[in-house]
Design a protein around this nucleic acid. Structure first.
Length: 644
DNA sequence: GATCTTTGTCATGGT
DNA sequence: ACACCATGACAAAGA
């Protein structure tokens, strides 16, 4: 109930009236005439309107769009959304039909219960497709006909393959030459699955087959090439090409494994296979026994050192899976977090490895030494010297020995021809700051789930986009440009001061982990100040976004309240007019009844009483008296004269 | 060029 | 005391 007090006046708001009505009482119970009630309702509505209008204006000042409050606008949006849902449904129906068609080409193996290809499978194209179809024999029959997410398919693949392998199913990928090199890098050199008892057998059998099926599934030439190269690597060295200690100690060595991704397909070789393997491991992990996982972690398997990147890679190809896992594996997150922080100080995983996940580093492979000091030089379009690197004034940022003030950055920002614009554009295309988060999401973070869920949609980078020549996607990202610029500023600052963590980490790590991270690295004053600034800004940015969101929701809520109040008012007005009509009718009936009673009254002589001279009055005990009107008016007039 | 919108940031107060 | 959050106010950039 809302009661608005103004001076000595007390107004019941419409809601208050609603409460009164809702409680079964009417205005008559409160000695309120309808007119009075109406006036108050009108008045209070006006009050509400004024208040809401003030709020409205405030929020319009703050950027709230008027159409947000427009009911018609929202209705249109709702219809659009429904249309989209219909389209999605149609699409899924189509997919289901395709699945049925696929199944029709398969034959049910009565022994294994698996679907195997029909006998005439001579066409090479068919054989290439067969493993995929076979591996999905379960997944296509499950899920109630719903199309399954890629992560679910993978999980089913993982669950399906060990059985097939154990039974020597004819449909399994019968390429030992493939299986051996496909072994995860953490396994002993060239150890066939049957010869490596210490490793989890589940994983050993599954991964190679999964991998190939996955390769078929994706049919990505890059991935295939990537895999084949890894096979060669593994056959030759039988070790995963992790950076060795000499590489790390080499100042020219770049700790940016992902950097190769942007430099052409062939460069994927250095990174893709291992992470691909880990990607598969990641999917296996989701179905592997928990103790297996813990054993893997406890053994400090080399793969742990690459899990970080691997998950990132996994995230690229399994955005949904990561989202699901991130929501469903909180128990693991803590372990991961500790694992990461533990591994940070290990020789094979220097702090710079973490930093390597920062977007700018993807372009720094060519000049690893210089880049850390030239935050703007990674254009992503050309490998030539960046505009910034040609600017002597900018190179001083790499000093790392002075305080990097905001004004410095503003100076940089205000130079339209400077590298900042290139930098921001580059970020729009390749350096989505959100791209950092998937990698980060592996070992964090609670409380930022909404942010994390938004990430995967930015992960699919068009090859044309990556080339930096496509303008269309860039225009799509224009809205994000500013945030990119801002993040890139922080990235630049962090880079300039050689801060060994990503901005995402700085912002999103829980305070304990953040402090632990800080304590593990010897940061100077400037670095500490910058890190805390970045964290404060990042958190405040999110807070501001939440605040605005809440404000909008509150405005929308108030608007709906207003709508319902208006409806209530309409209803009350209708009820009021109805009651007035009823009252009028009752009065007429009462009058006619009164006259009828009067007409039947007779005095001692049998004469009727005149209604103008007499009236009927009821006493408190229920008896009725016939009172002469003259006397009554006389008394009343006497009262009137005496009362003042 | 004026105006509006969006977004990031700072200051401040509350928890 | 400190970290975090919420929010008003302001500024910058884009539409």
């Amino acid at each position: 109930m809302i009661i608005i007090c103004q001076g000595s006046n007390v107004f019941l708001s419409s809601a208050a009236v609603t409460d009164l009505i809702g409680s079964g009482r009417t205005a008559r119970h409160f000695n309120l005439s309808f007119e009075e009630l109406h006036m108050e309702v009108m008045h209070s509505s006006q009050q509400d309107m004024n208040l809401i209008d003030i709020l409205w204006k405030q929020d319009i000042d703050l950027g709230a769009r008027r159409e947000v409050f427009d009911y018609n606008h929202r209705q249109k949006e709702h219809e659009l959304q429904r249309q989209r849902e219909l389209e999605e449904e149609k699409r899924q129906d189509l997919l289901r039909e395709q699945e049925k068609a696929l199944l029709a080409q398969l034959q049910l193996d009565e022994e294994t219960g698996e679907y195997i290809p029909c006998p005439p499978t001579s066409a090479p194209l068919q054989t290439a497709v067969t493993p995929l179809e076979v591996t999905q024999n379960v997944s296509f029959t499950e899920g109630n006909g719903e199309t399954m997410s890629f992560a679910e398919c993978l999980q089913l693949l993982a669950e399906t393959f060990p059985v097939e392998e154990a039974e020597n199913s004819s449909v399994c990928l019968d390429t030992p030459a493939v299986s051996a090199p496909m072994m995860p890098p953490e396994q002993p050199a060239a150890t066939p699955a049957a010869l490596s008892p210490p490793s989890p057998p589940h994983q050993q059998r599954m991964v190679p087959d999964l991998e190939q099926a996955w390769m078929e599934l994706l049919s990505l030439p890059e991935l295939q090439q990537c895999l084949s190269m890894q096979m060669e690597d593994t056959l030759e060295t039988t070790t995963y090409p992790l950076p060795n200690s000499s590489d790390i100690q080499n100042p020219n060595y770049t700790f940016y494994p992902m950097a190769d991704l942007t430099e052409g397909e062939t460069n994927n070789v250095n990174v893709c296979p291992a992470e691909f393997m880990n990607t598969l491991n990641g999917s296996v992990t989701s179905v592997a026994p928990a103790d297996t996982i813990s054993q893997m972690k406890a053994a400090e398997d080399p793969v742990l050192n690459t899990n970080f990147s691997a998950e990132h890679f996994c995230d690229i190809f399994y955005p949904n899976a990561i989202v699901e896992e991130s929501s469903g594996q909180h128990g693991l997150e803590g372990n991961e977090m500790k694992t990461i922080s533990d591994t940070q100080n290990k020789p094979s995983f220097t702090p710079l490895d973490l930093y390597s996940l920062s977007p700018g580093d993807a372009f720094e492979k060519g000049k690893p030494n210089v880049m850390a000091e030239l935050p703007d030089s990674d254009s992503g379009i050309s490998s030539n010297t960046s505009p910034n690197s040609s600017s002597p004034g900018k190179s001083v940022y790499g000093d790392g020995s002075f305080i990097y003030s905001d004004s410095d950055m503003e100076e940089m920002d205000q130079n339209p021809g400077s590298a900042e614009s290139d930098y921001s554009e580059m970020f729009s295309i390749n350096f989505q700051p959100d791209d950092l988060l998937p990698a980060f999401s592996v070992y964090s973070i609670t409380g930022q789930s909404d942010q994390l869920e938004k990430k995967p949609k930015h992960l699919k980078t068009d090859p044309a986009e990556e080339s930096g020549h496509n303008n269309a996607p860039f225009t799509k990202d224009k809205l994000k440009k500013r945030s990119d610029v801002r993040l890139s500023r922080d990235e630049q600052r962090a880079k300039a001061l050689k801060i060994p963590f990503t901005v995402s980490m700085i912002i999103n790590l829980p305070v304990d982990d953040f402090n632990e991270l800080m304590s593990k690295h010897q940061l100077n004053e400037a670095q500490l100040a910058l890190v805390r600034d970045i964290r404060r800004r990042g958190k405040n940015k999110v807070a501001a976004q939440n605040c605005r969101k809440r404000k909008m929701e509150s405005i929308v809520g108030l608007e709906s309240d207003l709508d319902s109040l208006k409806e209530e008012k309409e209803r009350l007005l209708d009820e009021k007019s109805q009651n007035a009509a009823d009252l009028k009718e009752m009065k007429q009936q009462l009058n006619s009844l009164y006259l009828e009673v009067f007409s039947q009254l007779r005095d001692e002589k049998g004469h009727s009483y005149s209604p103008s001279e007499y009236s009927l009055q009821q006493s408190t005990n229920g008896s009725i008296f016939l009172v002469p009107r003259v006397k009554k008016t006389f008394i009343k007039s006497e009262d009137k004269h005496s009362s003042p």
